[in-house]
């Protein structure tokens, strides 16, 4: 201990805050459809033609209201990119190692990030065909899709 830090201490503390988040009408329709119908919905901007998932009220490029332009997407898609999470952290949704993948669903123009399960992490490849596996109980978040798994 040097003279300078002789009087320095570390005090344990906590930052704990409750909060809630409202999905809004557009987000709620998406989540309720996942939960009750096991259908994945996107929205299409008719100006630029892009199909967005998760849906949003406004096209970020064209600044058009697209909240009513629903399209049903396929529950299957392909891996466009992925990474293997190899460290554990209490905030992570799964125990390591697990695969986080960018998945482009049939009919969508934007990929979504999700968990890829039911597969050896070392055998995942870009272009791999995957399908959504829905959660059994109400989750009311993106994890209403529990994970994706390879087709066959």
């Amino acid at each position: 201990m040097t003279e300078e830090n002789k009087h320095c201490y570390i005090k344990e503390g906590k930052l704990a805050l409750p909060y809630q988040y409202f999905a809004g009408r557009v987000g709620s329709k998406f989540l309720v459809s996942l939960r009750d119908k096991k259908k994945i919905l996107g929205v299409k901007c008719e100006k630029c033609g892009k199909v967005f998932i998760p849906p949003r009220k406004t096209c970020e490029r064209c600044f058009e209201d697209i909240s009513e332009k629903w399209v049903e997407l396929s529950n299957e898609g392909e891996v466009t990119n992925f990474t293997v999470v190899r460290t554990d952290d209490k905030h992570h949704p799964r125990k390591a190692p697990y695969v986080l993948a960018m998945i482009k669903l049939g009919g969508a123009d934007t990929p979504i990030a999700h968990i890829l399960g039911g597969v050896d992490p070392d055998s995942v490849k870009t272009g791999m065909k995957v399908k959504a596996v829905f959660a059994d109980k109400a989750v009311n978040t993106m994890l209403q899709i529990d994970r994706f798994e390879p087709v066959n």
Binding site: H7, E12, A16, Q20, Y21, F22, A23, G27, S28
Partner: peptide
């Protein structure tokens, strides 16, 4: 209308 409720709790260390 969906609402999620959470509690963020982070352990902190403060230097005196």
């Amino acid at each position: 209308l969906i609402v999620i409720k959470r509690n963020i709790s982070v352990d902190m260390k403060y230097s005196t």
